[in-house]
Amino acid sequence: NNDALSPAIRRLLAEWNLDASAIKGTGVGGRLTREDVEKHLAKA
């Protein structure tokens, strides 16, 4: 759900053309954090 994404995370996902549903969020309530996105990018 994009409503739970911060503007910074939305921008990062758009910049790298990533799908938020493909990344497991570790923040409060399962929210994506910058670290989650960076770890996903490191694996790719």
Rank of each mutant, 00 (worst) to 15 (best):
A8G: 08
R31I: 11
E35S: 09
I9D: 03
K24V: 14
L32N: 00
T33F: 01
L13Y: 01
A20T: 05
A20S: 07
E15V: 09
R11N: 15
K43F: 13
A4G: 14
D19M: 08
T26E: 02
T33G: 02
R31T: 13
K39H: 10
P7H: 11
G30Y: 01
G30W: 00
E38H: 09
V37H: 00
L18D: 01
E38P: 00
E15L: 15
A42D: 07
L5V: 09
S6I: 06
K43D: 13
L13K: 01
V28L: 12
A4F: 14
V28R: 10
V37N: 01
L32K: 01
L41D: 02
G27W: 02
G25H: 07
L13D: 00
L18R: 01
N1F: 10
L18E: 03
E35D: 11
D36Y: 01
A42S: 10
S21D: 11
R31Y: 06
E15P: 00
P7N: 10
A4S: 11
A4K: 12
P7F: 07
A14Y: 08
L12H: 02
V37D: 00
E38V: 12
N1V: 14
T26W: 03
D19E: 13
K43W: 12
L41R: 05
V37R: 00
A4Q: 12
R31S: 12
V37G: 00
A42W: 08
T33A: 01
E15K: 15
E38W: 14
G29L: 06
K24R: 11
R10V: 14
T26Y: 02
A14H: 09
A22F: 08
R10T: 12
A20H: 06
A44P: 08
S6L: 07
E35T: 09
L13I: 06
S21T: 12
R34W: 15
L41A: 07
A14G: 05
E35K: 09
K39W: 09
A44D: 08
D3S: 11
N2P: 13
E15H: 11
K24H: 10
S21Y: 07
D3R: 09
S6K: 04
A4I: 13
G29Q: 07
T26I: 04
R34N: 06
D3G: 10
N17I: 03
N17K: 10
A42H: 10
A42P: 06
V37I: 14
G29D: 12
D3Q: 12
N2Y: 08
T33Q: 04
A22I: 09
L12Y: 04
